[in-house]
Design a protein around this nucleic acid. Sequence first.
DNA 1: AGAAATTATACTCAACTTGAGTATAATGAG
DNA 2: CTCATTATACTCAAGTTGAGTATAATTTCT
Lengths: 311, 311
Amino acid sequence: MRENRTMGNAVVETELIAVLVAVTDGDPRVLTIESGYALPSGPLEPGHRSLQAGLRAWVERQTHHPIFYVEQLYTFADQARAGADQQAADPQRGVARGISISYLALSREAAAEYPSTSWRSWYHYFPWEDLRENNGLLAGIRQQLIAWASHEESRLARIAGLFGAEGGPWNEELVLQRYELLWEAGLVPEATRYALVAATPVPGKEMLHDHRRILATAIARLRAKIKYRPVVFELLPHEFTLLELQQTMEALAGQGLHKPNFRRFIEQQELVEETGRATSGQAGRPAKLFRFRPSVLEERGFTGSKLPLVR
Amino acid sequence: MRENRTMGNAVVETELIAVLVAVTDGDPRVLTIESGYALPSGPLEPGHRSLQAGLRAWVERQTHHPIFYVEQLYTFADQARAGADQQAADPQRGVARGISISYLALSREAAAEYPSTSWRSWYHYFPWEDLRENNGLLAGIRQQLIAWASHEESRLARIAGLFGAEGGPWNEELVLQRYELLWEAGLVPEATRYALVAATPVPGKEMLHDHRRILATAIARLRAKIKYRPVVFELLPHEFTLLELQQTMEALAGQGLHKPNFRRFIEQQELVEETGRATSGQAGRPAKLFRFRPSVLEERGFTGSKLPLVR
DNA sequence: AGAAATTATACTCAACTTGAGTATAATGAG
DNA sequence: CTCATTATACTCAAGTTGAGTATAATTTCT
């Protein structure tokens, strides 16, 4: 146990990797480097007071973006990402064993960018996750998956559970599971690169190493979180209309929301208050402007208790 | 960004730390070392295929316990836990900067134990988290907190939100937040040790460093998870009665559950099926024995979609 | 053996929440 | 001044949840 601490430890390099999200024009975007091929990452430096402080420091220094919200996603070991034989096949991977700690950060898209960085829609990488406009994309993916399943019952059950039937139920939080199923089926370039399976990949931009997997984790986390914690407001300006709020949520969820019921949902949570001002200029009735009530952060716990308690 | 990877990295030691949970006799227990003072932890070794494999390996080797379920909790840097001046005050802390990766693992308590390890009820460390039998403990803690608040509005709001009013609402998932509030108020020994505040601590066993904080994180995670993912079954024998299932859930939640409604809750999830057998020997009507239906893991996604979607 | 205690299981019903849709209000454009 | 457009308000049936009662099948007590 603790006594073994010095008994053969691996001494490793540690890297912090960020999924920095902003929503612009109804589009959820992530900050990328290398023309959208990789997520920004930086080393943990001895001067950093904490892991989160280290992440904040280098993201703000290098991207000039203020980060409003940071949350740890997952930690993994570099070698765990692939077997030993892939080590040689991929010269980009360092020889030293490394630890990567990934983070989800929320911000707003600013005009000034560093030359090498750019904002990309996350549906660029996961087009099948956007159900707002139905192109026949999902039907095609389902077909490819079913072909791969070749009548195996358990595979077909997973496909149905994750990718639903035509117009059937769709769980928008299962982003990672869907990506992993596609990987397993050899339908993403990251998998075929290692020659697991050779097949025509589904649409969706490839990324370095497991960066698309990290991005999937971030999307899933954010989609789950917006339902029970007031994090959307980190992505909105100080004042916003209820429609803007709704469209930001829709962008994240990748699905349209029922307007009257969405308003009821927001009102009963008492998360926002009117500023007294309203929009003007656009067509139609002016919309009231709202602001987030930060006091709720102190008041409530925001968890959907669903167990049948006794009183 | 990525190019900076070699530009001044900290090279660190990495430690894996486990919260291994089992439920015995309606008591949720964690495996500890040093007479309940610390959580078991082991080093990341070069031979480990992955972080999780490393954790599994040394836990099973050192405790002889099979682990049925493992989930990563959180990663933190050693120095982040305390300021530089505490460094000298605490000789147990290594001089090298270290990374700790914590895990939640589920198991069943086995008879054979290693000499130095022991199972302890987690309510030993967090007695205020057990609402099943009401001793006047919470009332006393509320009093101490209110005294600390000394009429500051925001403090009083947090106390009310986290510790509720007498018989008022209680969110059992806020384990970590409650512990942190007690820390801030100087009411736990771990805080007073660093002389932040001197006060009479509330009941509850102290732990090494931030181990009690990690345990709180694990409890909160598990209390949240049992509501939407079928993880309780990892803590139960293969066959069980509905009452045993209920009592295990109650042990984790720290609250009594409404029996008829709990049965409805379980039935409508279709997670279990009758084995055909029943108990015998005890007083009262024999209870049917159930088993978990593992097929549901493939079928469903288990997330409580609460957004008002459109069709 | 029969009554009482004990535990399991089944059913009921009002209150609340959610899904889906319709109605009305206030603006700009033509 | 009318229409298109967007915002906001209301309605109502269906589903879910909270709380309690009724009945069944055992062991234990006398």
